[in-house]
């Protein structure tokens, strides 16, 4: 199922720059020098509880990225299982950040959108993207964790509310009617998501409404001719077949 943002009309879905990397990235980014040894880098990660360090030159220009996995891969597999002795550590101390980092890392600009960041992270299979300015200087980092936070915000699920599911035919103006009907009832939106390809020629619209009182709006939407999907129905469809058959009454 593909969730897509409603962008074709004004909703209070996103305030101004919420949808940009600049808003969601971590600004006080921890970086590391390429000449440091890998244990220094690892200590930095442990201290700040992070897994990615952009590697920069003295002018703060991005030259690489090092992850905790890069470091582990450079060491014998059981290195950290037994606390390594100083002697053993010394053997690997000559390994520098520049020896194990990825050069030419994939980076993104602060003016890109979080959708860009999501697609780029998915496409490049990395856990974080350094954020750079026009001079390739590091201004931040955006990780999967940052994107999760951004999406929780966009979904509005940090605020109390109720989720509805409305099935609509795939034709122009449907969404507007639904939004108008809800707005007339003085109900605020947390978010609206649309799932395409729900059914042939149908889409499922999921308004997340910031209210406990949805009985009346549900009836109103039904009166307008929309089919409201029972939440039970949409999660049962997701259950594995054997679990479904265990509940024949459903």
């Amino acid at each position: 199922m593909l969730f897509e943002f409603v962008s074709d009309f004004e909703l209070s879905l996103a305030k101004g720059d919420t949808m940009f990397v600049s808003r969601s990235m971590t600004r006080n980014v921890i970086t590391v020098d390429k000449e440091k040894n890998i244990f220094d880098a690892q200590e930095l990660m442990a201290k700040h509880r992070i897994r990615h360090l952009p590697v920069v030159d003295p002018d703060n220009r991005l030259i690489g990225i090092i992850t905790d996995r890069d470091i582990r891969s450079a060491l014998p597999y059981n290195f950290f299982r037994d606390t390594p002795s100083d002697e053993e550590k010394a053997r690997f101390c000559s390994l520098k950040v520049m020896d194990v980092m990825s050069s030419n890392p994939i980076a993104i600009s602060a003016s890109h959108t979080i959708q860009d960041a999501l697609l780029l992270i998915q496409d490049s299979k990395v856990g974080a993207l350094p954020v750079v300015d026009d001079n390739n200087k590091v201004t931040g980092i955006i990780s999967v964790r940052d994107l999760l936070r951004a999406f929780i915000n966009v979904l509005g699920i940090g605020e109390p509310g109720t989720l509805l599911c409305v099935l609509v035919e795939e034709k122009v103006g449907q969404l507007k009617k639904i939004v108008d009907a809800i707005t007339e009832e003085n109900i605020s939106f947390g978010s609206v998501l649309v799932a395409r390809y729900w059914d042939k020629n149908k889409r499922a619209v999921f308004p997340y409404l910031l209210t406990q009182n949805v009985v009346h709006i549900k009836k109103k939407l039904e009166k307008l001719g929309y089919e409201l999907l029972d939440p039970m129905q949409w999660y049962i469809d997701q259950l594995p077949q054997h679990e479904r058959s265990e509940n024949p009454e459903e």
Binding site: I157, P160, G161, T162, L163, Q212
Partner: peptide
């Protein structure tokens, strides 16, 4: 809470 108020 994914289906009902208040989401906690």
């Amino acid at each position: 809470p994914s289906f009902a108020y208040p989401g906690t």
